[in-house]
Nucleic acid binder design. Structure first.
Lengths: 218, 218
DNA sequence: AACTATACGGGACACGTGTCCCGTTTAAGT
DNA sequence: ACTTAAACGGGACACGTGTCCCGTATAGTT
């Protein structure tokens, strides 16, 4: 079912440009150029409308037809995966920088704020976090695990430093990010975003007292 | 456009059963029965799958055809609106009970927990809160405003009592509920839900100190 | 210059959705 | 019992989606 050549950048150990000239004709220049434009257009479109944007819209933005898109990325899921793989990579790098920097507490909380702000600017981040529509776990499993590991590392550090309550896990943090992003829908002012981040981070701090609300009083 | 008779229960001041017998034949018994079954099936289906469930599935559950569904509820949005109108009514009543009860702080926090638990049991609640898919504001505007007013009342009380920081608004609270519900996707154990509620409520409490994380340090 | 595999455009295809019409059945009133 | 309109079932319709095929153009090699 797959078309046939399926882009490049993976198989032989040969250098990426001007590969072996005699055995097979490797990849055409315009093909690689269109793939790059496609990736760029998909990046922008997914950021603007989330994962629900249509492939026709992406192809239109890239100035190519849906057939071309389909050859480079046989399925929409692969295209989305390629895009979020990029984003995830950036976030993981950011997390590593923060982990290497100052104290673990501010590293974690800063990363939380970064997540929310990136998610506000790029809707694909939120869709990937909340697994909306696609099973990103399957597509970008490696990158996603990297992201999970990075987040876990920061969280562990903050917990060891006593800045975050011990019982929270990474899924809790992700859910809080999703909550902060959900606030964006009505009244997307900057103050509200900062306030939501503040609320979430304060909630993550160790409880000053055992004053959790009753769950089922009535 | 609209079929023609459009169910009953709205127009004349006559009693609901055995209306004026001579002028026009009012409504048939099986019609009312099927409408009730439809509403019941829609309630269950929306609770189970959220607003994304298809009208065919709802009709199948009710044991009627899609044509019948379409006559009683000309559009899916109306059906969803009727269902969430019910749910919203229950929640508003619950909020009023809590407001009439003990101190405002526990009333507000308890209502928050109720919202999360109801949302976990009924996916239509979360979809209505996050305005996923439909513009519930338009359909169930009155009920939604009632809900907003009720939530605002509880929030105001808790804020006056000093139990909740002054700068939060109802949209913040709704977003936090959505965040708690987002946690349900992976590992939907009861402990996680309670933990998320605890985190959110602690975050809503007045800040012990001005230790909000930096937003853009790098 | 000639040739060939690669890449492309455009549209066809299948699928699922919500909505609506039409011929038939049936409850209710005379 | 007969009549009539409300209610029904089932399918047609339009729309949007993602995917894929086929004929054509072109980049790259000989």
């Amino acid at each position: 079912m797959a078309q046939e050549p399926r882009s490049g950048e993976s198989e032989p150990g040969a250098s990426d440009d001007r590969a072996a000239s005699s055995p097979v004709r490797r990849q055409r220049a315009d093909g690689r150029r269109n793939q790059a434009r496609l990736l760029e257009a998909a990046f922008a479109a997914f950021a603007e409308h989330g994962a629900s944007v249509s492939v026709r819209e992406i192809a239109r933005r890239a100035g190519v037809s849906t057939g071309t898109l389909s050859r480079h990325f046989p399925t929409k899921e692969e295209l989305f995966g390629a895009v979020v793989l990029n984003r995830i990579g950036q976030l993981v790098r950011r997390a590593d920088e923060l982990a290497a920097g100052g104290d673990p507490a501010t590293a974690f909380f800063t990363f939380f704020a970064v997540l929310v702000e990136e998610g506000a600017a790029d809707h694909s981040v939120g869709d990937a976090l909340s697994s909306a529509g696609f099973d990103v776990q399957t597509i970008a499993s490696t990158a996603n695990r990297d992201f999970g590991d990075a987040l876990r590392g920061l969280l562990d550090g903050a917990q060891r430093a006593g800045a975050v309550r011990q019982d929270v896990d990474t899924a809790d943090v992700k859910a809080l990010v999703v909550g902060c992003l959900a606030r964006e829908r009505d009244g997307l002012d900057d103050a509200a975003r900062r306030r939501m981040i503040s609320i979430a981070c304060n909630g993550l701090r160790p409880c000053p007292g055992p004053e959790a609300p009753a769950t089922h009083p009535a």
